[in-house]
């Protein structure tokens, strides 16, 4: 029996889809059977981030309505055999599916896969209710901005009321070290003080994430990027390892500079 994890945030644009794609990828890298589920019906883009858009034939709504079998709608990733994607429909809206239908699909998937990563749409309406319906665990993504932390707080409140979910964990995304040092950005401690839930990981703001996303390749596949290492650490924490948080300092020390000169990374 697998485990369904919903990735949510309340606010839009904080990196839910990118986080879902990368967590799915790092878990697949560790050899787990993973299924990514996009529940953002009408505004799907997990398939684009994964570079699988051209392979879509059936989608989530087709499965829910019984127009196809679950296996027919699942798309195998081009890089990993153990990673699949269940895409959302693009031509319908969030009300095209009910939480009960969603729960059934997730339960079916849990029999086949080790991890089901559910990408939740922004907002707290129907789309959110669908996304959390079948989930066992939740990961809340936030950025060090006051608006995003406020929405994360709201979402955590809703998640805590759901008795099917164990306590949610937090990922702080898009951290810019120099701004945090100057006090222009909320500090990690400040965010943790307000939200008061377990921290699953922190991810640096990295331009490589944008270029990788545009190529349809999750950043986690590129081991030289700081964001990639952060996602790999998050993946290991999900699997139960205890990995210390990354150092925020991105200035290379003397030793690293010598190593770099010698061309050994």
């Amino acid at each position: 029996m697998g485990e369904a994890i919903v990735i949510t945030s309340g606010k839009g644009g904080v990196g839910k889809t990118t986080t879902s794609a990368n967590i799915g990828t790092v878990l697949a890298l560790q050899g787990k059977k993973v299924c990514l589920v996009d529940t953002d019906i009408g505004l799907r883009n997990l398939d684009v981030v994964m570079g699988l858009e051209n392979r879509i034939i059936y989608d989530l709504v087709d499965v829910a309505d019984g127009r196809c079998k679950l296996n027919q709608a699942l798309i195998k990733d081009k890089r990993f055999d153990c990673l699949t994607l269940l895409p959302a429909a693009q031509t319908r809206d969030k009300s095209a599916i009910t939480p009960e239908q969603m729960k059934k699909i997730i339960d079916d998937l849990k029999r086949e896969y080790d991890y089901i990563i559910i990408d939740c749409p922004a907002g707290i309406e129907q789309g959110y209710k669908n996304a959390v319906a079948g989930a066992d665990k939740a990961i809340v993504v936030t950025t060090p901005e006051i608006s995003s932390v406020r929405d994360a707080d709201r979402i955590i409140g809703l998640l805590e009321q759901d008795e099917n979910l164990s306590s949610p964990r937090l990922i702080i995304n898009r951290i810019r070290n120099h701004m945090m040092k100057n006090g222009d950005m909320l500090e990690i401690d400040e965010i943790m003080n307000v939200l008061a839930i377990d921290l699953l990981g922190i991810v640096m703001d990295d331009e490589a994430v944008i270029s990788a996303t545009n190529k349809g390749e999750p950043i986690a596949l590129n081991p030289s990027s700081k964001a990639s290492i952060a996602y790999r650490n998050i993946g290991r924490r999900i699997l139960g390892e205890s990995v210390p948080l990354m150092a925020l300092d991105d200035k290379p020390g003397f030793f690293q500079r010598v190593k770099k000169l010698l061309g050994m990374r």
């Binding site: 406020r150 707080d153 709201r154 409140g157 809703l158 307000v194 008061a196």
Partner: peptide
């Protein structure tokens, strides 16, 4: 408990809250 954004805690009489009241709550 932690009273989070969007939540309302209403009590008759006096309230002793062991936890936080977050912004928006």
């Amino acid at each position: 408990t932690i009273v989070r954004s969007g939540q309302v805690l209403e009590i008759e009489g006096d309230l002793l809250l062991i936890g936080d009241v977050n912004p928006g709550a």
